[in-house]
């Protein structure tokens, strides 16, 4: 109780918020990077203040922070899936190309930057059609090609062995954890290179959570993964980097092990220790 009051106090009194953001050196490849990214809804107060974050290729980065800290808002802006009344300022550099630009085709961006949400949202279609639907809307494929893609993406999501004999069953008949992995497979089928996960396991039971986490770690070699999570243990278990968000600001961004063992900012250590949030 005492420490909580102290934190609120210190935020109020500080004009400059103390921050620490790691600098990726040039030998680290950057899959996606934001420059002065600012987000506001309906012209109200900023949901996110100038944010500069770079994400290394083939690594898992966790975004942590309390509800309303701006981490989900940030994640959603990365593949331009934000709502109608959202204003985004600054740059989002995808392999160096600024995609926060009206000339960019957002559908193409979303194919390359896949996204998985908190609650599993398979279509009310068969398992097979869930995976092929987006593909067949984009181009023509032969049956063999589709079969191959279905198999490989289900394998990548570690679901193939469980569903290979019932691909024509409704996706809604799967368990929550299976549904979430199907949704991951569905995104992978489009051959993205970045995967955004918005609290992918928070609606799942512990066993399903473990399965989804394993899947994430296995996917790392081929994909860059950015995951929003409320679960500090999860962030510590799976991610290479962690960024801590607080009230629309990135307070600290560093290697995960540093964030959880020797954070440089007091606010981060308080949050990681569970003092608030």
């Amino acid at each position: 109780m005492v420490s909580r009051n102290k934190i609120v106090e210190s935020i109020k009194n500080e004009v400059e918020i103390e921050k620490y953001v790691i600098n990726l050196s040039s030998k680290h490849q950057r899959a996606i990077e934001t420059k002065d990214l600012t987000i506001s809804y309906n012209g109200k107060k900023n949901a996110l203040n100038k944010t500069n974050l770079a994400f290394e290729t083939n690594k898992i980065t966790s975004l942590i922070g309390a509800s309303g800290s701006g981490k989900s808002t940030f994640l959603r802006s990365l593949n331009l899936i934000h709502g109608e009344n959202t204003l985004i300022g600054g740059q989002i550099l995808y392999h160096g190309v600024n995609i926060n630009d009206p000339s960019i085709d957002k559908f193409e961006v979303r194919r390359r930057i896949g996204m998985v949400f908190q609650r599993p949202n398979p279509f009310a279609k068969s398992i097979y059609n869930n995976i092929t639907f987006a593909l067949t809307q984009r181009a023509k494929y032969t049956k063999n090609q589709l079969d191959e893609i279905v198999e490989s993406s289900l394998k990548q999501a570690a679901l193939w062995d469980q569903v290979k004999d019932e691909l024509n069953k409704s996706a809604l008949s799967l368990s929550g954890g299976q549904q979430q992995r199907l949704v991951i497979a569905r995104a992978l089928a489009l051959k993205p290179d970045i995967l955004l996960l918005d609290e992918p396991a928070s609606a799942l039971d512990p066993k399903s959570t473990m399965q989804v986490e394993e899947t994430m770690v296995n996917l790392k070699k081929d994909y860059t993964i950015i995951v929003v999570t409320h679960n500090m243990q999860q962030a510590a278990r799976v991610s290479d980097y962690t960024a801590f968000f607080h009230m629309g600001n990135v307070i600290e961004y560093d290697l995960t092990r540093k964030i959880f063992t020797r954070p440089k900012v007091k606010l981060t250590s308080d949050y990681v220790a569970g003092n608030f949030g």
């Binding site: 593949n79 899936i81 559908f107 193409e108 961006v109 979303r110 194919r111 896949g114 996204m115 998985v116 949400f117 609650r119 949202n121 398979p122 279509f123 009310a124 639907f133 987006a134 809307q137 984009r138 949704v183 569905r186 995104a187 489009l190």
Partner: peptide, 16 residues
């Protein structure tokens, strides 16, 4: 809305 989000996240148009 989950279903609409799912479509959007896959790069499918709202119409499809």
């Amino acid at each position: 809305n989950l279903q609409r989000e799912a479509g959007a996240a896959l790069g499918i148009s709202r119409f499809e």
